[in-house]
Design a protein around this nucleic acid. Structure first.
Length: 804
DNA sequence: ATTGTCGTCT
């Protein structure tokens, strides 16, 4: 068979096959190399290996690389090996580049390296340079450096070698080493600048200056890298200046600006630029679209992200994995299940299980889908999707999204099961996994499990993520009722950030330890952290839960003047709570009336809650009216109003509210409590008799109530009736979920150990009083967490000192 | 032949 000469290939002809239709915009390609890959491959597979024809294999591999199909390139390489061909020093740089572009493991790279050595090409400078680059992209810095050092010992390093090693350090989070090698390298070209600019985290003014002086800034790659460097440093002013000064801009330049604005919080500017790209009829690529979609998604604007996606499809731009992952995270953020399903359909059709597609890419879409379904509370779909991913294809994110989904939106116990299964199957959790488990612990107040996770963290050093993990531990310990251990974790931190301080302060606030919270507030400022809006919410919350009315007012008054933090609706809500708990209802009302911004439902709700506590029906009715105008679907508002009437003995009004609720189709959320004991977590609804120990529980409860009555406990009948629901029988005082949980806790805990109870709603007043008395006669400290705060009952008193 | 810019998840 006649084979075209390799140097000037003439088109191979096959009369039996019509040429494939070629895109119209590539006429030259069509003329010179029609169907090159297809026919050449056919020829090559039928020819005996010969060095003079190796050219064709190399050419095929290069073509695959140009088509951004590295897996295909590697398959070609495999194929040629199978057919008995020997690669040469031209082949290796291509295949090494291909393996570097695969998002998954370095295994391929290692075996290619061994092929290189076996065939004796490691002394070729091109091959060695490609090896350095490949190891850099696979994140194997040590081997990149080893190859580089061997070259430099032989004295064969060229400019490309230096550029490659700089790039290796820069892209693997070693900016210092990258800059060091850049300085050592001496010879500087455009590529050197492009490689070193990402390492200039705190501004690369010098490199930018050099680019200007040398004229290399004219190179559009260099200009883009400069724009991107400023954008990543948050110096959008500088970025914009460079952008406007660039004579040659390309799509990447625009994209870098759009992303820069979006990531530095100036999303409106990003959108302006995006519009401008439309107007200038710049052909947008997948990066542009993904960038805008991710901008919306990160701001929780899932529906807007969806609109951009539709626009993208209409303009015939092909979404890729990144686009879908961004989009799904937007759907997850707003719980947009329908839209999420739409994306799922799109993914099945266009994205998953493609030939030459990469499994390492597929798993990212799968993870994002699982996350989306879990956050949209479709746990069955999420779990079956999770199960459908083969265990060997799962990665740590697959596990983490599933664990996190259950922890935050579903069954936290399920998180624990998954976590232990994950460890059994020898997957390595990362800081995010740990964080999700700690969220689950906090939700259930599962202190024992939380301590096990803490122990795991100590055994398996989390080095660079330790700050993040420790912050999560502080939160977990606080929410599990052990703020002293939270403090211990805080004290032992080598490095603290804003979140560390805020978390601990929140912890003290929750436990009514306002003095300590305010000490932390002062120490935090001494440590150089300026308080912001969130900090003041925490401060005011701590004051109100500790009865520190005067100081709360003081902070509220000075936060704007002295700290420059503008008062938002959330701060007003805290103040209403603070005044309300102290019984200063009219002052709270005046505060709301004087608000410069529209009062949010939560502000009115807080006042209504205070009206109920203090039995001010007249004001309560007014407040309820305002509240229901704003938000008529919240079961809590109706319950408060009804309880308030019950308190005042106005049973007709109670019935009126109940029927109002019924006609609006609103049901009271049932109270539920759970308790940790030796046997694990047990949960109880009102009048619950499903627990196997039910009989003992009710007997113990009756006994306890008899005994505390002697001590002066009087059942508060107003509360007894407050929860009476026409449909619910047996809603008696003694059957409240928290009382059942307490009895279970006493039955199943060793004397002297604290009993930890969590309730989904606010604790009822009668239970609070009963708990106080019971703590006098049992050998247990009782730690009760309700939806508002913690109550530590000890020897006949409660930590909330009446501010509950 | 080899080194180069922009977008993603927990």
């Amino acid at each position: 068979m006649q084979v075209p000469h390799p140097i000037q290939p003439s088109p191979p002809t096959n009369p039996h096959k019509r040429p494939h239709p070629q895109p119209h915009h590539q006429p030259h390609l069509h003329l010179h190399f029609p169907q090159l890959p297809h026919h050449a491959l056919q020829l090559l597979t039928h020819l005996p290996p010969s060095p003079s024809l190796l050219f064709w294999w190399n050419r095929l591999i290069r073509t695959a690389l140009r088509d951004a199909a590295p897996r295909k390139a590697l398959n070609l390489y495999k194929q040629m090996l199978c057919l008995g061909w020997n690669p040469d020093h031209y082949t290796y740089p291509f295949v090494l580049k291909a393996s570097g572009e695969l998002p998954t493991s370095s295994c391929v790279g290692f075996s290619l390296h061994s092929h290189v050595c076996v065939n004796g090409y490691e002394s070729n400078v091109f091959v060695s340079n490609a090896l350095v680059a490949m190891y850099g992209k696979c994140g194997v810095l040590g081997d990149a450096r080893k190859v580089f050092d061997e070259m430099s010992q032989r004295g064969v390093c060229d400019g490309v070698s230096w550029n490659s090693i700089v790039s290796a350090y820069a892209r693997n989070g070693e900016p210092g080493a990258a800059l060091g090698m850049f300085v050592l390298g001496g010879e500087v070209d455009a590529v050197s600048l492009v490689n070193v600019l990402p390492a200039c985290a705190s501004g690369g003014k010098e490199v930018h200056g050099y680019a200007l002086r040398s004229g290399l800034v004219e190179d559009v790659y260099v200009g883009n890298a400069v724009v991107d460097m400023y954008a990543k440093c948050g110096m959008m002013g500088e970025a914009k200046k460079v952008f406007e000064g660039m004579e040659v801009k390309d799509l990447v330049t625009w994209n870098a600006m759009v992303t820069g604005f979006s990531q530095s919080g100036e999303f409106d500017d990003a959108l302006v630029l995006f519009e401008k790209m439309w107007e200038n009829e710049i052909e947008l690529n997948v990066v542009t679209w993904s960038s805008v979609i991710s901008g919306y998604a990160q701001r929780g604007l899932g529906f807007e992200a969806m609109d951009i996606f539709r626009k993208m499809i209409l303009s015939r731009s092909a979404p890729n994995v990144v686009t879908l992952v961004s989009l799904l995270s937007g759907c997850a953020a707003v719980g947009a299940l329908i839209q999420g399903r739409e994306i799922h359909g799109y993914a099945i059709k266009h994205m998953l299980n493609r030939p030459y597609g990469d499994l390492g890419e597929d798993i990212k879409v799968q993870n994002a889908l699982i996350d989306m379904y879990a956050k949209c509370k479709s746990f069955d779909t999420a779990h079956s999707l999770f199960n459908s991913v083969l265990p060997e294809e799962r990665d740590v994110v697959t596990w983490t999204v599933m664990i996190g989904g259950y922890a935050q939106h579903g069954d936290a116990n399920e998180s624990f099961k998954l976590f232990s299964l994950m460890l059994q199957l020898a997957y390595i959790p990362n800081a995010f996994t740990i964080s999700c488990c700690l969220v689950a612990c906090a939700r259930l107040s599962a202190l024992r499990f939380g301590k096990q996770i803490h122990a795991y963290v100590i055994r398996n050093r989390f080095e660079s993520a330790m700050l993040f993990v420790a912050n999560c531990l502080i939160d977990m310990y606080s929410k599990c009722g052990d703020v002293d251990t939270a403090r211990y974790v805080f004290n032992s931190m080598v490095q603290k950030n804003f979140i560390s301080w805020t978390s601990l302060m929140t912890g003290y606030g929750m436990h009514g330890r306002g003095e300590e919270a305010l000490q932390i507030f002062d120490r935090m400022q001494e440590a150089g952290f300026a308080p912001d809006g969130v900090t003041f919410v925490v401060v005011l919350y701590a004051c109100s839960h500790s009865g520190m009315v005067y100081r709360g007012i003081k902070y509220f008054q000075t936060m704007q003047r002295e700290y420059g933090v503008i008062q938002g609706a959330e701060h007003y809500a805290c103040m209403v709570d603070l005044l309300g708990r102290a019984g200063r209802l009219n002052e709270a009302l005046d505060l709301i009336k004087g608000m410069p911004i529209e009062p949010s439902p939560i502000v009115w709700f807080t006042l209504l809650s205070a009206c109920r506590t203090h039995g001010n029906v007249e004001l309560g009715e007014y407040v309820a009216g305002r509240l229901l105008d704003l938000e008529s679907q919240n079961d809590g508002s109706y319950t408060l109003l009804s309880n308030m009437y019950a308190n005042a003995g106005r049973w007709k009004d109670v019935a009126r509210v109940r029927s109002l609720m019924r006609s609006a189709g609103i049901r009271k959320r049932p109270g539920c409590s759970w308790v940790q004991a030796k046997k694990g977590t047990a949960s109880f609804f009102v009048g619950d008799r499903s627990n196997p120990q039910s009989q003992e529980i009710y007997e113990l409860l009756a006994d306890l109530i008899q005994r505390i009555k002697v001590l002066g406990y009087v059942p508060e009948t107003s509360f007894a009736l407050h929860d009476v629901d026409d449909e619910e029988k047996g809603d008696l005082l003694s059957e409240h979920s928290e009382k059942l949980a307490l009895a279970y806790g006493i039955l199943n805990s060793a004397p002297g150990t604290p009993i930890r109870i969590t309730k989904n709603l606010r604790v009822c007043g009668d239970c609070h009083s009963a708990f106080t008395f019971i703590s006098q006669i049992v050998d247990h400290e009782i730690i009760l967490r309700d939806s508002s705060r913690f109550h530590h009952f000890k020897k006949g008193s409660c930590s909330c000192r009446g501010y509950w």
